[in-house]
Design a protein around this nucleic acid. Structure first.
Lengths: 95, 95
DNA sequence: ATAAACAAGTTTACAAAATAAACCAAATAT
DNA sequence: ATATTTGGTTTATTTTGTAAACTTGTTTAT
């Protein structure tokens, strides 16, 4: 029987967010938005979910006078991602 | 910018179904149900969607007197799966 | 100085998807 | 004979995803 896929990560946008953060100490809202092509609303919602799950830390500060939201992956998030990828391989790799 | 993931395949159960069919000439409803642990209702619905998309062929026959639904992957489905996997790698492989 | 346009998000309302519960028809077991 | 199981389908509910509308503040133009 196939293992279940972590539903929090098995979502296109959330997976994209985490995927970006895995390779990059930190990234801000605007950057992630550009990389993913997501709408701001959708991105805001999904970042929230990842934060509530403890997968990412979100820091709201300012760059000059403009608000700036910075995200970074937590250890919990990193582990969840690598578990997810491992499980996913069972689905996509030839058996 | 990340490529979008085929939404028809980016679904745990549908991905599981196709994943099973990739390696196995054909498989019946009962077998897929056991392999995936899905409820019959959910499986029925998802098989329908894959069929309507032309990703699988569904044959309803009888084994003895009992109904038997057999599925097999079409070439279209096989191609869609391999494209999906390729795209997915951009999300899960280190960049 | 005021208004218009822009930036960075958040909230809310709607659409789509997933899922389970209820159902159906036929077969088998009691 | 009737109760249970098998092999599903249909329908209704819940969950999820997404975009549109809104908020707060900033820059730019007039």
């Amino acid at each position: 029987m196939l293992k279940p896929l972590n539903p929090l990560l098995h979502s296109e946008l959330r997976l994209a967010i985490v995927s970006i953060l895995v390779g990059v100490e930190e990234a801000d809202f605007v950057y992630i938005r550009k990389e993913t092509g997501a709408t701001a609303g959708n991105l805001s919602v999904q970042i929230d979910k990842l934060q509530k799950a403890g997968y990412i830390d979100v820091d709201k500060g300012f760059r000059g006078k403009m608000p700036r939201t910075t995200c970074r992956l937590t250890e919990v998030g990193r582990k969840a991602f690598s578990d997810y990828v491992e499980t996913l391989r069972e689905y996509i790799e030839p058996r």
